[in-house]
């Protein structure tokens, strides 16, 4: 009988415990993290960036400069449900690339997010 009670308690605890995680990505694939791609100031052109990365998330014209803004958003959540305690977290992280071009369409300055999301070669 003792083993039956132990088994019953074990099944009860396991049945009332759950853990789940999920994640999703929205935006432009972060090809700017590819080790095969390099951007050079005063050399790379708007056409080069468009050809490599595709259409940007946002284009801004600022006083004889054109800015291409690429954004990849990653959402991740984790949930832990124990018998009497539950914990969950929900994080949103971004991998961004921004390119400033001069009036001749040459790359003036570019920057990538300090923390990158995992690059997935597509």
């Amino acid at each position: 009988m003792r083993w039956f009670i132990t088994l019953f308690m074990l099944i009860s605890v396991c049945a009332l415990t759950a853990c789940s995680g999920s994640g999703r990505r929205v935006g432009i694939p972060n090809r700017w993290r590819s080790p095969d791609i390099q951007f050079t100031t005063n050399k790379t052109t708007e056409e080069d960036v468009l050809r490599i990365l595709g259409p940007p998330s946002q284009i801004v014209a600022i006083h004889q400069r054109t800015v291409y803004f690429y954004v990849l958003e990653e959402t991740s959540s984790l949930r832990l449900g124990l018998l009497i305690f539950a914990w969950s977290s929900f994080d949103v992280e971004y991998d961004r690339a921004i390119f400033f071009f001069d009036k001749n369409g040459r790359l003036e300055k570019y920057a990538l997010s300090p923390k990158s999301l995992v690059y997935e070669d597509d």
Binding site: I5, F8, F85, A86, S88, D91
Partner: peptide
């Protein structure tokens, strides 16, 4: 009696829930 007590404990519970959210760096 033990099973009955266990069932009562399962039916009468206290739950604690903690939630954390963050967006951007």
């Amino acid at each position: 009696t033990f099973l009955l007590a266990l069932s009562m404990m399962g039916a009468s519970t206290a739950c604690v829930r903690v939630v954390n959210n963050s967006q951007d760096r």
